[in-house]
Design a protein around this nucleic acid. Sequence first.
DNA 1: CTGAAAGCGCTTACAG
DNA 2: CTGAAAGCGCTTACAG
Lengths: 340, 340
Amino acid sequence: MDIKKFSVLADVSTATVSRAFSGRGRIKEETRQRIFALAAEHGYTPNIHAQRLNARRTDIIAVYYSFSTAAIFDYYNMELAQEIAKAAAARDYTTNLELTQKTAEPSLGLQRAAAGGGLDGIILVADSRSGALAFLERFKTLPVVVIANHDWDLPEAAGLVRIHQDSGIAEAIAQLKNAGHTRIGFIHGLADTAKHDAFLHALRAEGLDADSAPTASGPLSFEDGERALAELLPTGVTAVLCSTDILALGAISGADKHGLRVPKDISIIGIDNLSFAPFTRPPLASVGIPRTEIAAAAVEQLHQLIEDATAPVPRASAQLIHTINTRFIPRASLGPVLQR
Amino acid sequence: MDIKKFSVLADVSTATVSRAFSGRGRIKEETRQRIFALAAEHGYTPNIHAQRLNARRTDIIAVYYSFSTAAIFDYYNMELAQEIAKAAAARDYTTNLELTQKTAEPSLGLQRAAAGGGLDGIILVADSRSGALAFLERFKTLPVVVIANHDWDLPEAAGLVRIHQDSGIAEAIAQLKNAGHTRIGFIHGLADTAKHDAFLHALRAEGLDADSAPTASGPLSFEDGERALAELLPTGVTAVLCSTDILALGAISGADKHGLRVPKDISIIGIDNLSFAPFTRPPLASVGIPRTEIAAAAVEQLHQLIEDATAPVPRASAQLIHTINTRFIPRASLGPVLQR
DNA sequence: CTGAAAGCGCTTACAG
DNA sequence: CTGAAAGCGCTTACAG
């Protein structure tokens, strides 16, 4: 049933029906009540496409992951997407889950939706500035908020939620130092320069030797972590910071294979603090990324950009930057250095 | 720029522009080329809402989780949602991630989208027949495919992807029996009657005593698993099947706290086979739920229902039921029974 | 192969 | 407070 038939049935004009449902414009309370009752009885609901055609707004946002290397929709990103969807729902946005294996190119669906007005805005999780800039250029007509580990200089129109890895990593290194560790290694992940820089910076802040800090490259899987740990062992490390929790779990397993117990013989720390980190054996000490805060900040920024863009007189937004500090979550995989 | 302005610019009618983009109707190849070139140059894209208003189709589907108890968007469901989004993308559907804490009531957004034609169909993950039926009744105008552990009798209009827990659980119990276990316990999850029934059935099939099989209730968290295992220990179980992997991890930790090693002193098996199951310590033997197959089957069924509903002459679909067998994935947390 | 025009189902400025 | 009518940006049956 469309508004025309329904308005005849309700013995009012389509304008009045529209007013009843939109809540805009003046309408007698009694009339509204009557229309609602009738609508419920006859199963009338406004067609959402016709509404959106008028409104030039959809209340739909998309989350898009743009990685410079292999596309990984891993636990970290799943948990982040979930938090974004929750935060968006609280603001009455629906979230489109855009998954794609090809990272370089936004999916056709995303492009069509965005270009055709099917999307109010996009939250972009990016690991390279050039990738983010290319994305922003491509979708420059649309509000975009970028979530990244870096304090990038972006076009004014874009929002930025910057994850400050330094704070949590500095705490982690400080605790290692307190526990007597002086020889600390690092296992690389993908596109993790922010994390590695933070690591080096934290070593120096603690008066430790950063220049010769042992390093191995994961970059991704559990098995990568096992292998990388084996590479680091000959350097005499007593503790290892890993770029992700998955790598850290691999490192714990790798240590085990060499007859080393965690944390008695070696300490292992991850980054991400996935929700199962407390339940690994031993429980995994990890640098926590506050996903709930990040999601809330990103949705808040995007909402503001959308409001500004769709205001009666569209206004330019001030540059939006929100920094989120990470924090170290100590657990049993970090222990005092072995006294030999 | 809208189609009117653009058609003037291209010196053709709006009908011709529409034909060029839709691929429907006759149009000279040369004209189409020219229109595409001009569109790219001037940045014209058809408005998606106007298209949908005409098409009565959106190519958007939603995934909805309906649980009879607490809403849990846990790892299992995250991984399933991810697979569904992938399968849907392969068929050119966009997936809306509907997350809600209130399980009883579909979110307002979902209701509005569905009623207003904003959605072509819904994939419902349900754990109770009455919940599923209530949902189907509420959305009876829309194609719905139900994913469940049960062989429910549903209205003809709905599709059903049925996860057959029995097959994988039977394999698990058979392997335990082979390994010498005769006293096998069960830790309950939420709404897991299908799993528990399969457990009892499998015990009987192996000639084991099902009537006195020790049972404890989780139902949900890692800590629940720890506690439940402690409850089971006095019964003399040598192996425990847990309703979820998370409970199984808790059970392993619980065993550890009582000085029991897995699998030397006790075997622990999970259900779900989450993607980190191979990386736990010890690696977790688990009943695998083939998420990729489930997602493919659900999307395929939904696609068919949608096609049938939007056909020029809408046709009633035959009853769609697809059964997916689970299978046991042995790993190190299952070992031979201790010889004392 | 192409165009003029009606229609998809709403919203809203303008009158009253 | 309410209605008549134009408009949102497409698509498609009908002519030619």
